[in-house]
Amino acid sequence: MQLDVSHISIQYQDNVVVDDVSFQLAPASLAAIVGPNGAGKSSLLKGILGIHPLKKGNVYFNGQTLSSVRPHIAYVPQRESVDWDFPATVLDVVLMGRYPHLNWWKRYRSIDFNIARKSLEQVNLIDLADRQIAQLSGGQQQRVFLARALAQEASIYFMDEPFAGVDAATEKNIVSVLKELQAGGKSIMVVHHDLQTIRSYFSSILLLNKKVIAFGPTDEVFTPERIQQTYQRESLLL
């Protein structure tokens, strides 16, 4: 799915956190959003997904507005954003991803259970399907979230720091799932922190610090000067 973001700005009270951001994400791309703390990375995702209202600008998916393509969009929030003590099992959480595909009566059918189980297999968690979510490690919780997104069977995926605080095995698993998705023609955008791994994980990259510093294929964009520019924008402005 092609994503067109044109001139969007996002504001929290009086604070502009995303300023006039435009870019186009081609189908089947695996892109990282990189920038310092407070650069508006999470806000950009929330703005694109309509979770936070846009001050101005437009977002189009294959030329259509968000509301008409919503069932084809998946979002993985930050792991810390929810209370993992919530009374739910792993399977319960993954089934939440089927919600957009349910009929008006909102009852799960056997196909929903099958898809949820298949998603859990993809992230190697099928054995823990009936475990309470508080009893999982951080990496396992992150994979539950990924499985929920997979169960949505979307065409484009947005993930907020899926690699934060996870073990090496989880990181490997997530990367392979992402590459599989890309190979299957899906687009993925990931907020990412670890500059070391960007080259090996992502095919394109968006350098962000409130404004777009650069956007393009990783090999072209990911240069020392550009990175410096991204992380030192404050001093440039002065």
Partner: peptide, 19 residues
């Protein structure tokens, strides 16, 4: 029950799927 459960557990996910 289901929308209540969704917004109680993960509000931003609920918003992202159009609830």
């Amino acid at each position: 029950y289901r929308p209540f459960m969704l917004i109680s557990f993960d509000r931003s996910f609920a918003l992202s799927i159009g609830i």
